[in-house]
Design a protein around this nucleic acid. Sequence first.
DNA 1: CCGAAAAGTAATCCGTCACGTGACACACGT
DNA 2: ACGTGTGTCACGTGACGGATTACTTTTCGG
Lengths: 104, 104
Amino acid sequence: MAIQNTGGMQRRPTHPGEMLREDFLPDYGLTVAGLAEALGVSRQSINELLRERRAVSPEMALRLGRLFGNSPEFWLNAQRAIDLWVAAAAIKDEVERIKPLDAA
Amino acid sequence: MAIQNTGGMQRRPTHPGEMLREDFLPDYGLTVAGLAEALGVSRQSINELLRERRAVSPEMALRLGRLFGNSPEFWLNAQRAIDLWVAAAAIKDEVERIKPLDAA
DNA sequence: CCGAAAAGTAATCCGTCACGTGACACACGT
DNA sequence: ACGTGTGTCACGTGACGGATTACTTTTCGG
């Protein structure tokens, strides 16, 4: 059966920027500017990502996946968890007012 | 091991709007306006979704998942496939210019 | 038939967001 | 002291989800 998880999780999921900051940058010995150049984006893009002020876009996910040898999906999964968490918090009551069709 | 799929897929992945139009609407006997009202959004939002002119947002995914009894991830997975496909087509050469760190 | 209600769609406005550029301040090493 | 690199802010741009409004087409009851 499909797990529903209608409740959503308690705490905000880990932001990809945190993963980058805590794990990837130290592990690879990269600086912000260095990463920016390696990815072919501006320093600000990386900076805002690390500060968790910007989401990982599909384009950015492609770049990150390419550089670090993992899939774009890896980065977008983390981002999606955040997006869903934020969206759920924002329109929680709206969504709960929707009557599931199965349960008729 | 992590499968890489660096090549990307040949044809454009199925748009969530197509799934709605071809499968969900007929199966549940819903009209566009009916779906819009059931979800609590405007008719245009649904209309543009069905015509594949708009992406499934996290908010919309929450609504759809709630109404149809499946997960928001289901809808966002389909959307992400499209987003990645489009992004890859757009910045393919840019990404390929990035040197993977592992492969040194 | 015909007129009204419902459904599809186009146009417009608004808020948000990823991204680049330019500028600024603060280090730290030579 | 100077210059290089790094963190950050301010601004402009283009794209996009969404609502509202209005116009067109279809459908259906009398």
